[in-house]
């Protein structure tokens, strides 16, 4: 569907991509965040962490919509999702 007219606040209300921070030393590779990410922004790494686990890494950060479910479901408290502040809007 193509809109011939954009809402006035479309730019303001647009979903801003989130920033995912993963502490790879805490991650134990349970796969919850990767499997339940609604936009498939995460994947498991091929390399191992210092404790021998495959850890979650960000596959494509532009897909992240900052819903924060990975942050909530992570059993190791290893994921943080932040929304970068846009200085132009404020």
């Amino acid at each position: 569907m193509t809109l011939w007219r954009q809402p006035f606040d479309a730019a303001e209300k647009a979903t801003k991509p989130g920033q995912i921070h993963i502490d790879k030393e805490r991650c134990k590779g349970c796969d919850f965040c990767v499997d339940f990410c609604p936009t498939e922004a995460l994947r498991m790494s091929v390399e191992l962490s210092s404790k021998g686990y495959n850890f979650a890494v960000v596959d494509d950060e532009s897909k992240c919509l900052a819903c924060g479910f990975c942050e909530l479901i992570c059993p190791e408290f290893a994921i943080t999702v932040s929304i970068p502040l846009d200085n132009n809007v404020a």
């Binding site: 921070h21 502490d23 790879k24 134990k28 590779g29 686990y53 950060e61 059993p75 408290f77 943080t80």
Partner: peptide, 28 residues
């Protein structure tokens, strides 16, 4: 980006004992 945790950003990090992490619970 995969980087170390920014403790100030995490909303629950203030309630966790950082020196006890990582915890003993199994993967998953």
């Amino acid at each position: 980006m995969t980087d170390t945790l920014n403790a100030k950003n995490h909303s629950i990090e203030k309630y966790l004992r950082q020196d006890r992490m990582p915890h003993i619970w199994c993967s998953g």
